[in-house]
Simulated scan of single mutants.
Amino acid sequence: MGHAPHAGSTPMGVLCGMGAGALWGLVFLAPELARAFSPLQLTVGRYLAYGLLSALLVAPRRRRLVALLSRRDWLALGWLALAGNTLYYVLLATAVQTGGIAMTSLVIGFLPVAVTIIGSRDRGAVPLARLTPSLLLCAAGAVCIGWQAIAAPASGSVRDQLIGLACAIGALASWTAFAVSNSRCLARLDRVSVHDWNLLIGIVTGAQALLLIPATLALDDWNRAAGDWATFAGVSIGVAIFASLAGNTLWNRMSRLLPLTLVGQMILFETLFALLYAFLWEQRLPTATEAAAFVLVVLSVVSCLSAHQRERRGPVAQ
C-alpha cells in the first residue's frame, strides 16, 4: 500500500505539516493550563467539543458522506478515533502531568523514526538506507530535547516519573499506529475530502467521549471552583478548534501531498512547537541542549527532504 504524490506537492505538504505541528503543540500545554482536572476529564471535555463542532459542520452534507462510506470505512474511523485521539490524549495528558513536558516531548519526539521506518516498506518509498542520516539526526535531536529531564533530578517522585514514561511510550505507540493507518486510509479514500474525513473522525471521537462520561463521573472529583470550570471550558474548546479541527485538517492535507516516509518527519514540528510554547509558559530561553535539539531536528527534516528529491530525480534522469 502507499501513494505517490506528484512532484510539485512537497513544498505545500511541508507547509501543511508545519502548520499542523504549530497547532498540535498546544495539546502539550493544555494539561498544565487545566491541571485541576484529570487526564480523563480533559479528554472528555476536548473531544465532546470536537465531536459537537464536527457534527455541526458536517450536517449540511451528512447524507452524501454516509452514502460514500462502507462498513470497512466506519470501522477504520472508529480505530483512528481511538488510536489518534481518545487513547492517545489520555496517555499524553497523564504523561505531561506526572512526568513533565520535557520527558513527554522526548518520547513523542521518536514518532518520526517509528513512522518513517514503517513507511519505508510502502510501495515507491525512499529506501531506508537513504534515510539513515535523517533518522540518526532525528534520534539525536529527540534525545537532546529531554536530556535535562533525565539527567537532572526529577521534580516528582520516582513512581510519578515511571508512570509518566510508561504513558508517554504508550502515546508514542498509539499515535504511530494512527499516523500510518490514517495516511493509508486517505490514499484509499480519494472520494472523501481531507476536511470531511477529519470531521467524521471528530464525530466518532465525540461518541467515544460520551462513553467515557460514566467512567469519569465514577472515578474523578467534579467539585471545582467557577474559575477552574471557566479554564476547563476554554481549554477544551480552544484545543478542539485549533488542534483537532484546524490541525487535523492540515495534517490530512499533508498526508495526501507527501509520501509516508516524509510524513513521519513532519511530526517533528509538533515537538518543536511544544517546546517553544513550554519556554513561553515558563518564561525562559532554551538551554544549550535544547537549542542543539532545534538544530538537529531541522537538519533531520532537510536531510529527509533531500533524500526524497534525489529519489525523484533518479527516475526522471533514467
Results as ranks from 00 to 15, higher is better:
114 A>E: 00
281 W>T: 05
221 D>Y: 01
39 P>R: 01
101 I>L: 14
122 D>C: 14
163 I>G: 08
172 L>G: 10
243 A>M: 06
158 V>H: 11
204 V>T: 05
21 G>E: 00
192 V>T: 01
36 A>H: 12
123 R>N: 11
274 A>P: 01
229 W>A: 11
148 Q>G: 15
186 L>V: 07
6 H>D: 11
195 H>Y: 14
23 L>R: 02
268 L>E: 03
175 W>K: 00
259 P>Q: 06
304 C>T: 07
43 T>I: 03
102 A>I: 06
318 Q>F: 01
66 V>M: 07
245 L>C: 02
212 L>R: 10
12 M>C: 10
286 P>R: 07
255 S>V: 06
190 D>W: 02
86 T>R: 00
202 G>A: 03
18 M>R: 03
258 L>V: 08
275 L>N: 02
130 R>G: 15
90 V>G: 00
209 A>N: 05
153 P>S: 15
253 R>V: 08
219 L>F: 14
10 T>V: 13
21 G>K: 08
73 D>A: 13
290 E>M: 07
79 W>D: 03
84 G>R: 04
96 V>I: 13
304 C>N: 10
107 V>E: 11
115 V>D: 05
253 R>D: 05
95 A>M: 07
108 I>A: 13
15 L>F: 11
293 A>G: 15
112 P>Y: 08
288 A>Q: 14
91 L>M: 14
133 P>I: 06
192 V>S: 00
229 W>D: 14
169 I>F: 15
38 S>N: 09
261 T>N: 10
151 A>V: 12
167 C>R: 05
124 G>H: 14
121 R>F: 15
100 G>K: 01
153 P>T: 13
106 L>Y: 00
307 A>P: 02
129 A>W: 15
186 L>G: 15
185 C>Q: 07
143 V>C: 08
303 S>K: 06
55 A>H: 00
70 S>M: 06
284 R>Y: 08
68 L>S: 11
74 W>M: 07
45 G>W: 05
